[in-house]
């Protein structure tokens, strides 16, 4: 299977099943879609009016050589392999600790509804947090590196417990030959020098929530009484990013129908001095005024194109940034098994509520149909866990023939469930945007390879 497209002046050909990426001239670009269904003579006949015969023959030979070498028209022979891979025993690798089901902001698009996840306000106790870390250690098998994300709500509303749990983790990792990688997400309201110093010592990554331009951020991320949060958080985030040497963090925003020109927000964050940036599409019920619509896609595609071209320009000028959704590794990256088997939610990754209940991931918290167990008794819903384990690319009809499947792994189970009532469908708007981002990310690689 081959996916070919034009972007920013480049003719790009992705050989989907091998991962090979080719930048081609117009002749090769026109030969490739004919190659499998036409003979060489037929191709010469069809393209002879447009290109010199010798050039077509040269192009044909190059396409033929790449096909023989397994870099064009590679077949998908992975389905049986992935099915057997997914039958293997899995261990728990990562927990998302909902350290606080409470928040000091009232972001309008928050899936947690002011941090409360459709339930009551609550803070995780030290005892529950310790039981969660014990559960992770006990269910991680021989795996040494374990990930724990402090999430909310707003985790800094329960910072004392965060500190105690990190100390407990450091103590336990020595006893059990484990290595905890702690991460933290914050809206910045309670961020101060003490938190920064602690995070710089203990947190492998921090995610700092901000949407971009002041008017964009403050429209969607107000305090409960309505005031905006931008002026309070920006100087603190700038100081925090600098204190981390401009690495191991993301400023992370959400764009909505109110800022379809979101590339301006990405560049605004870059111009504030941030170098690690993610601005991501909102996922919302269609009836919400700020929800993205099918009709918005052409404008959003144009924004991604515009952003990609600008990031190439800035990279060449020596002031590049890292945009999370354009990160792609064409040389390395994970193996086929990982690429096709999904994110790990429900099996390798679990979310823990303040009272110790387990859910497949943070997006499912509060939906009792997805309650999987708790940290003291472990996983009870084995059948549900099996559904998540089998939720790979080949379980999703829309993904089986998609060119992007090796880069998106079938998308987000929670988004699929929220839009279609099934974890084996896909969220269609998100899917379209993901495909566009992959095209842009590959184009950036092509543009920078020109140098």
């Amino acid at each position: 299977m081959v996916h070919q497209y034009k972007n920013n002046g480049f003719n790009i050909v992705l050989d989907v099943n091998s991962g090979a990426v080719h930048v081609v001239d117009d002749i090769a670009y026109d030969i490739i879609p004919l190659f499998e269904s036409c003979s060489k003579e037929e191709i010469l006949g069809r393209l002879g009016q447009t290109y010199p015969q010798g050039e077509i023959e040269e192009g044909y030979s190059e396409v033929e050589a790449l096909a023989k070498d397994g870099q064009l028209f590679t077949e998908d022979g992975y389905e049986a392999y992935i099915s057997s891979f997914q039958e293997r025993p899995t261990v728990v690798k990562a927990l998302c600790l909902h350290i606080a089901h409470d928040c000091n902001l009232a972001c309008r698009y928050c899936f947690a509804e002011e941090g409360e996840y459709h339930g009551r306000r609550a803070l995780m106790s030290v005892e529950t947090g310790k039981a969660a870390l014990d559960f992770l250690i006990a269910n991680s098998g021989n795996r040494r590196n374990l990930e724990v994300d402090f999430f909310g709500g707003e985790p800094l509303m329960n910072f004392g417990v965060v500190k105690e749990l990190v100390a407990y983790g450091r103590e336990q990792e020595k006893l059990h030959n484990k290595n905890f990688r702690f991460t933290l997400t914050t809206n910045g309201v309670l961020l101060d020098d003490e938190v920064m110093e602690f995070a710089n010592r203990e947190m492998a990554n921090v995610v700092l929530s901000i949407d971009g331009r002041k008017e964009v951020n403050d429209k969607m991320r107000p305090f409960r009484k309505g005031a905006g949060s931008y002026d309070l958080i920006v100087p603190k985030f700038q100081k925090f990013a600098e204190s981390r040497g401009q690495e191991n963090y993301y400023v992370r925003g959400t764009y909505t129908r109110y800022n379809l020109d979101f590339s301006e927000d990405v560049l605004h964050l870059a111009d504030l001095g941030f170098t690690q940036i993610s601005v991501e599409p909102v996922v919302a019920k269609p009836e919400e005024e700020y929800a993205l619509r099918e009709e918005d896609l052409p404008q959003l595609f144009a924004e991604y194109d515009k952003l990609a071209a600008e990031l190439v320009k800035r990279e060449k000028e020596g002031r590049g940034i890292n945009f999370f959704h354009f990160m792609i590794d064409l040389e390395g990256g994970p193996c086929v098994a990982k690429r096709l088997s999904g994110c790990g939610s429900g099996t390798e990754y679990l979310a823990v509520t303040p009272w110790g209940d387990l859910y497949p991931c943070h997006q499912f918290v509060g939906d009792e149909a997805f309650l999987m167990g708790n940290v003291t008794e472990g996983i009870q819903a084995k059948g549900l866990q099996g559904e998540f384990k089998r939720c790979n690319v080949y379980a999703k009809e829309k993904c089986r023939e998609c060119f992007a499947r090796f880069y998106c792994s079938g998308g987000c189970a929670a988004n699929s469930y929220n839009f279609h009532g099934s974890i084996t469908d896909v969220y269609d708007i998100g899917c379209q945007l993901q495909k566009k981002r992959i095209e842009c990310a590959i184009m950036i690689k092509a543009a920078l390879a020109e140098e």
Partner: peptide, 27 residues
Amino acid sequence: MKHIKTLNTKKLQNTVKKGGTSCTVGQ
């Protein structure tokens, strides 16, 4: 090659024998 420039030498099929959490996969 004159008409085609290949950006990478990766072959995913080679990771089947050698290979085998992320909310990125593209890790």
